[in-house]
Design a protein around this nucleic acid. Sequence first.
DNA 1: GATTTTACTTAGAGTCTCTAGGTACAATAG
DNA 2: CTATTGTACCTAGAGACTCTAAGTAAAATC
Lengths: 113, 113
Amino acid sequence: MVIRRDLIKGSSNSLLLSLLELQPMYGYQIVKELEAKSQGYFKFKEGTLYPALHRLEKSGLITGKWQMLPNGRQRRYYYITDKGQTKLALEKSQWQDFFTAVKLILQPEPSGS
Amino acid sequence: MVIRRDLIKGSSNSLLLSLLELQPMYGYQIVKELEAKSQGYFKFKEGTLYPALHRLEKSGLITGKWQMLPNGRQRRYYYITDKGQTKLALEKSQWQDFFTAVKLILQPEPSGS
DNA sequence: GATTTTACTTAGAGTCTCTAGGTACAATAG
DNA sequence: CTATTGTACCTAGAGACTCTAAGTAAAATC
């Protein structure tokens, strides 16, 4: 079992990949979707989101494409790559391990019964 | 519901408080206990643990007391304070919220059934 | 016409974890 | 008896991530 302590601070990567697995999205949309899907819990700030997207793209986990809107404006849509899919699957299982470990500490089983 | 994004990177506080809730411990012992209880998952480095303990003490969540061993050496035992107990209860419920939110994103329910 | 919302970007501060080093003594191995 | 391993604590500095805050720009709503 590979242990990734950085899961703790790096949850954003998994969350973003997981969203983009469902469909390509652009930054602003991602913020709204994350908030809606998490029932208001996650409210990504721009200063968190955009750098995170740029990191993911640089790592080859997602690809961004500018798309022209009818009104002439541009949006940058992000697509998950094959590499990103693989990475996401790995991170999901690592999240499971992390959850399990935290629960072992925070909710210890009563030793006797 | 108070949302604490820093839970993500700040899991150590909850873990430490949770351990000390069971019994007072000293630093070295905490490392070993955390590893044992989490079945090998958490292996705190000294550079993480001791600064964390000092932060907790400074915040009044734990109290450290030097204790003399029969052989003349000293250990610093940490005790959770009332303030720490209160804080821990809060953090546990915040963890629940966080878990729930992450799961909503990483394991979305199929919309139709 | 003014405000809010959409949409992207970046610099800098703050926080946390880890690496790596230091100190010191006890216990065990060879 | 000496070398290594384990116990036990501490800290400086690098690296990574999130947030605040600011800038740019245009559409939509009031």
